[in-house]
Design a binder for these strands. Structure first.
Lengths: 207, 207
DNA sequence: TTTCTTATGTAGAGGTTAGTACAGAAGTGG
DNA sequence: CCACTTCTGTACTAACCTCTACATAAGAAA
């Protein structure tokens, strides 16, 4: 049914996409609603009518980010034939996403709300939950591989997921700080070497 | 020579230490001078007289952080007998520093100015330079080891330094997000396995 | 004591923040 | 045509931001 009343004069999806880019680039706390409405090409009342407030807009922007950017990495992981290739695909795909021309560098979820203070506690906790999902997603892929016999049944998938999540977060910061795309891919190759010793306490070859 | 005029009624070093903790916890942009002067127990004019302005105070706070926290990690690295043990010592020492009770978690330099916007460009660039030094410091230790014959002369020390810097940055975020200290130490052990293949392009054992 | 210097507390200037009141515009339904 | 609903731009509020003017306090130097 067609809604009554004056129709919206701007494209809500396009505006949300713009807001996502601004938050991604500048972070939650350091982006003002004035910046946002200016970038989105609308006036404050339109912003608030369409997105309720700054926090809701941010949550929607993160949702869009997950449905587009983050989900592409997850898909690359799911489509890979083996657990090892899945993790490598996730990391390499992420590197490409972190260094795409015309988009902010690094991961929005990692960078946009790291130092949210107590007065934005709900935003901070929201971002925390989003970040926690990264490890969960990797672990789920590894568990599926273990079920399929692609990994030893006694593999500590949580440990591996934690390692690559940590490394992935580091890649975000390196990308934001201007690291070269090819160098980041090379670092991913290095990180994949850990795969060769996924289980048990590692032996210090020197000690 | 003793300065003339009314003496300062507060301990400048203690106030700076407090400011460091506040910036470390909350970040540069999201910490207000009101928060700072309240935490330091002084009024705004005293803050500005002693530290010039917010940016100068931040720079001094980062300097203090480097002289205390960061330098302890560097010392652990320098004192280790071999290059490999040096990197391991740096990472393990950092994990301890990132998860010390009563202090903010993670690295101040990584977390306090990640999403500084264009209007704080000088602060952002300052933090960027500080972060870049981490890799330089690791590389210097590796180069020294290469000179001493502890590493092959053709070792790509820049590449190794880049990998461990990336991983170290990831540890900061994991620590800030609440990761357990023992788990982080375990992740360091995993990362050290990369050491076994430091040179040349790594062979993908599966591809 | 007087003078000079520097620190202090109060109080506020000037700008920015998130969010909104309001009048009018632009549609739909009758 | 008219009511009704919803969006729009202008203009604003109240709270916050960084930073400072100013009168006074507290020490050293003379």
């Amino acid at each position: 049914m067609a809604r009554t009343g004056r129709p919206r004069a701007f494209d809500r999806d396009a505006a949300l996409h713009t807001a996502m880019l601004v938050f991604w680039e500048r972070g939650y706390a350091t982006t003002s609603t004035t910046d946002l409405s200016a970038a989105m090409g609308i006036n404050p009342p339109s912003l608030y009518a369409a997105f309720k407030n700054k926090e809701h807009l941010f949550r929607e922007a993160v949702g869009l980010y997950e449905r587009t950017e983050a989900d592409a990495s997850r898909r690359a992981m799911d489509e890979a034939p083996t657990a090892r290739k899945a993790v490598a695909a996730l990391l390499h795909e992420s590197v490409d996403r972190f260094t795409t021309e015309g988009k902010p560098r690094g991961c929005m979820i990692v960078l946009a709300a790291t130092n949210c203070t107590e007065d934005h506690a709900s935003v901070r906790d929201f971002a925390l939950r989003c970040r926690a999902r990264t490890k969960t997603t990797i672990k789920a892929r590894l568990d599926a591989a273990a079920d399929a016999g692609d990994l030893d049944a006694d593999t500590d998938t949580d440990r591996i997921a934690a390692f690559y999540t940590t490394f992935l977060n580091g890649l975000s910061l390196q990308a934001r700080d201007g690291a070269d795309r090819t160098q980041l891919h090379d670092l991913v190759d290095m990180a994949m070497f850990v795969w060769n010793a996924p289980n048990g306490p590692l032996v210090d070859s020197e000690a």
